[in-house]
Design a protein around this nucleic acid. Structure first.
Lengths: 256, 256
DNA sequence: ACAAAAGTGTTCCCCCTACACCCATGG
DNA sequence: CCATGGGTGTAGGGGGAACACTTTTGT
């Protein structure tokens, strides 16, 4: 609201103070498995449990800025490199008792990073780790972070259909095979390669070929793939619809 | 984050307190024009300007609860009736100087109401008014509310494509013509009636016919239309794609 | 020579678009 | 009986799914 309905003579400090934080669901794809960056909690509450990285919003920064700062800290990337990553606001979680200690309102963000050479980074954050989302994560996350993570994962999957989001998981130059890997990993389905290729190339400016192609990347055999980089178009039209999956797929490991 | 990265001996009160508020973009369709519920500001800053209704999040309620409370207050509806309305969180706006007086973080919501018999409601809120979004609104909104409104409007338009959102603008029982009106009004395009009908009926459980049909509603001539009500399905699949509009349409009136 | 991965071509079918056409009611 | 809005039918075209096929590399 910002300004109306303020009772006369209202004093903001009369209210119990709200702490405002950001929580980050940072995703990457490593070896065809979706991973999230998590932190093992040291103190109570939820000592020993996994939690999403995050931190307080400082008095002079927006939630977006705080999220970017935290992203850089937790991944060990420089501010410049981090600002090139995809980072988007998810939604805000504000249940009065989501933190037993005090009133904390948290603005959740989802971030996408390519497979980093270093596991996490030797910077400020000590214990951030990539955790696979393949069902092996059994213990519930701290606070309402399980829900946040599930929401973030769903949002990412949905946006793959009609945006260039998937390239956020890729290095600056990538093959169409790598891009398809991302889709298959996030969605947990197999896609037809010829059709995938056509759809991705159908939207002008979605990906653009880089001239000097065919550098050998994935150690292996087979015809060397052409390299592409992300184009200007951020919306994929027509969208790349996810095949309907009747029942299967492992959505486990997030029940918190 | 909720709990990690707290500096040792951290005292939350050492931080400048954040006020947390909700802002509501409440939409309705009246006479084939999209309207928003706005409030004329009395005091500075932005005295005399239009603003979105909203208010503080109280210490013991979530943002969702606060939004519902405000929605009921501003529309004059009972809490029960209001809770039947569509109300969804949009995103959070947290620029440090979005309010010149103090640090205010606002969680924005979008709400949809059917065309109410009463203009706004004789309840608590004095001056809430429906304002047409047809380009006649020239003055910029207070604070960053112009941006919030634009974001809300875009989100609503987008979600019409693949959800049952449009029925939020309709009374409990409605004709397919009325439903089509909603789409055409929000999107600002004309749709082919036979095809609209088929698409809406294609998803089982999206709308369901109510037995005793053909009540005369819109004073008028023509064959009486069958009545439908919202079904259980909330996703429209396949989606009802918005025709590509090359250039025209009035998106004005929101530049703030 | 064979496997593996990239890339191209082609067929079939479904759905969407566009209209034409009938039905029911009010004036 | 005509205007108006509700409802059904149908021909045609575009695009996606499925799959066959060629190309280029490593072993």
């Amino acid at each position: 609201m910002t300004g109306n309905d303020i009772p006369e003579g209202y004093d903001p400090k009369a209210f119990e103070p709200f702490a405002v934080t950001v929580d980050l669901a940072v995703f990457t794809v490593r070896e065809a498995v979706l991973h999230v960056l998590l932190i093992r909690r040291g103190q109570a509450p939820y000592a020993g449990a996994w939690a999403l990285p995050g931190g307080f919003v400082l008095p002079d920064e927006s939630a977006e800025r705080a999220a970017l700062r935290e992203l850089a800290e937790e991944t060990g990337l420089s501010r410049e490199r981090a600002s090139g990553l995809h980072l988007e606001q998810l939604r805000t979680y504000s249940d009065p008792d989501r933190d037993p200690r005090m009133r904390v309102v948290s603005v959740a963000f989802a971030a996408l990073v390519p497979d980093l050479p270093e596991p996490s980074g030797g910077g400020d954050a000590a214990e951030a780790q990539w955790v696979a989302l393949d069902g092996s994560l059994r213990s519930p996350l701290a606070f309402d972070h399980g829900r946040i993570l599930a929401d973030a994962r769903r949002r990412i999957g949905d946006k793959l259909e009609y945006t260039s989001l998937a390239m956020g998981f890729c290095p600056p130059e990538f093959t169409l095979g790598e891009l398809q890997q991302v889709y298959e990993t996030v969605w947990g389905v197999a896609l037809d390669r010829p059709n995938f290729r056509r759809k991705v190339l159908a939207t002008p400016g979605f990906v653009e070929p880089v001239g000097g192609a065919a550098q050998r990347r994935t150690g292996g055999r087979g015809k060397p793939a052409a390299l592409y980089r992300a184009g200007r178009a951020v919306v994929l039209h027509p969208p790349l619809l996810r095949p309907v999956v009747d029942s299967a797929g492992d959505t486990s490991g997030e029940g918190a």
